[in-house]
């Protein structure tokens, strides 16, 4: 029986989609790394390793674990569309809702051959359109670029991050809109917030060291989450599905 199930899951299409996804994504990744190296070599602007480490430690400390956690969290929903989804980005704000919408329209369940195929159709169509719209944005930007060099715009762009984070954090701190929500999750934040606040107020944590702070706070948050989850204080609760 197990052998039969394996045969059904690993048919020709499934084998093809994973092989094509892996090889295609690997080529894309190598090309992504090639671009900055080619530009740096072409314009004799290759930075010293120390500069890359100085600029990159915070980014890597933050995004590598986030990237890994996203793959672990969303791949079961995205299925074999994951290769294209993670390659084209904009997962939470675009691809994931698109897949859920497609599954609903086709009345298919994920982790079935039908669900997997229809999810890939949705992600592929969405990815192509997004790329075309951004290209259109590039064409519109060229005549508008002088506007983006004004003092007003430069001043406004200095505060892009808090301008985005205020709204974004509301979404992170509020209840999840998907199939589940995490009850009492804000309790996980109390200790890290207190520690970081003290270090900011006392001047220990200065701007630029946020990445290091995240790396230090992450095990604390996970440890606290584990204790609260084991005690049943932090719980995963299923959201009720609202019919339109």
């Amino acid at each position: 029986m197990k052998e039969k199930k394996e045969t059904v899951i690993l048919d020709d299409y499934t084998n093809w989609v994973h092989r094509f996804g892996r090889i295609g994504a690997l080529i894309a990744i190598l090309y992504m790394v090639f671009i900055p190296i080619a530009i740096a070599l072409a314009y004799d602007s290759f930075p010293p390793l120390s500069a890359i480490l100085k600029g990159g430690i915070g980014v890597m400390a933050l995004f590598i674990p986030i990237g890994i956690s996203e793959v672990i969290s969303y791949t079961p929903i995205l299925g074999s569309a994951s290769y294209l989804t993670f390659l084209t980005g904009n997962i939470l704000n675009l691809k994931l809702p698109c897949v859920l919408n497609a599954l609903k329209l086709a009345k298919a369940d994920q982790n079935t051959p039908e669900g997997d195929a229809i999810a890939t159709v949705a992600v592929a169509a969405s990815s192509i359109l997004t790329m075309l719209i951004i290209a259109l944005g590039v064409l519109l930007l060229v005549p508008l670029q002088p506007l983006f060099q004004t003092a007003f715009v430069k001043s406004a762009t200095s505060y892009m991050l808090p301008a985005l984070f205020g709204g974004m954090f509301l979404g992170i701190l509020g209840p999840e809109q998907g199939s589940f929500r995490i009850k009492n999750k804000l309790l996980i934040m109390i200790v890290p917030v207190v520690i970081v606040s003290i270090t900011v107020i006392t001047g220990i944590l200065i701007s630029g060291l946020e990445g290091v702070a995240i790396l230090l706070m992450l095990p604390i948050a996970i440890g606290i989450a584990r204790i609260l989850w084991k005690k049943g204080i932090v719980q995963v609760v299923t959201n009720e599905v609202k019919e339109d």
Partner: peptide
């Protein structure tokens, strides 16, 4: 050189997910 650093850092920093997806994606989806 700062532009080169930004390009390199932004590229490497966002690739973490593929460290899991490429070797384990097939097993995970099934």
């Amino acid at each position: 050189q700062v532009f080169s650093v930004i390009m390199i850092v932004m590229t490497i920093g966002i690739l973490g997910g593929f460290l899991v997806l490429l070797p384990f994606g097939k097993k995970m989806t099934t």
